[in-house]
Simulated assay, not measured.
Amino acid sequence: MQEINSLEQLLKLTAVAAAAIAAVIIVWYLVKRPPLGRLTKVLLLFGLGVMPIGVALTGNVAGFEYTLKREFCSSCHVMLPYTEDAADPKSNSLAAIHSRNATFGGESCYTCHADYAMFGAMTTKVNGLKHLYYYITEYASSGPYGEKGPRIHLYKPFKNGSCVRCHSTTAPNWLAREDHAGMVEEIRKGEASCIDCHGGAQVHPRSFNHGGNGRAPTASAAGEKKE
């Protein structure tokens, strides 16, 4: 029996089990044709209602959990310059360094690019639909790494809040850097952007090497999130 190591695997197993139970109940009823007594009605309620709803719920949540993973992002060829660098143990880019963090490394794309607010997960996934739209309409026929595709769409500034969730701006090593200490109040207030200094090719260098046709954001656009 396969060991369950994540919530996603547990949800998938639950969905399969619920679907199997529903199928057994329905087949039993169609074959046996028992009288519609109380027990039969209860079983049909589970087979036609409770279990299918359980499949839908657990299946959708399992799908959502999968979309958090970097492997999901890399399933789109346009993202390969980003995800291959992030997964490279020899890379010193910011994306790769953050992806080696044991706490969230497997979900580094989502962790860094999600909107952290009351409805953060919802707004992030709605914005993800934009990715799907642009892929179908503009990038599907581009090269293996998105070469000759149009410029990557930018939709909103990259907020410091995504950084200070981990980098609190209070650690001694962080404050020991002259640039940090001199701008700490501006950074905390959001008047100075972390990505102004740490953006561009520092984050995703392979996107600049493989992007082609001006796909990678220019330095002036480095302070914004990429679609």
Rank of each mutant, 00 (worst) to 15 (best):
Y134R: 09
S74Q: 15
M51K: 07
D115L: 10
H153P: 08
E227N: 13
R215S: 03
N213Q: 04
Q202T: 03
V203C: 02
F72W: 14
V42R: 10
E191W: 13
C166I: 08
N173C: 05
S207H: 06
I195S: 07
L30F: 07
G143V: 04
A95T: 00
H113D: 04
T58S: 08
D196P: 02
Y155A: 02
A15P: 02
A62E: 04
L175M: 12
V78T: 14
I53G: 02
A86H: 03
I97P: 01
V203R: 01
P157K: 07
A181N: 05
Y66N: 12
H210A: 12
L39K: 08
V31R: 12
S75D: 14
F119W: 08
T124R: 04
F208D: 01
S141C: 05
P217G: 09
E71D: 15
A140H: 10
E185S: 06
G190E: 09
T218I: 08
A171G: 13
C112M: 06
N5A: 07
G106W: 11
I26P: 02
L68Y: 08
K225E: 11
M118A: 13
P172A: 05
L80S: 08
T111G: 01
K225V: 03
R70E: 05
R188F: 00
G214M: 04
E147R: 02
K69M: 14
T83F: 02
L44P: 04
T58L: 00
S91G: 10
W28C: 05
L94E: 05
Y134F: 15
K125P: 01
P157D: 05
N209V: 14
E65N: 11
K226F: 03
T169R: 11
T124L: 09
R100S: 13
F208I: 01
G47T: 03
H131D: 01
D85Y: 01
D88G: 04
S141F: 13
K148R: 12
G49S: 03
P157G: 02
S93F: 10
S142P: 09
C76E: 05
T124G: 06
I21W: 06
S108G: 01
G223I: 10
V31A: 13
V50K: 02
D179L: 08
A201M: 13
E138R: 14
A117Y: 07
V24P: 05
V31Q: 11
R151T: 09
K32V: 15
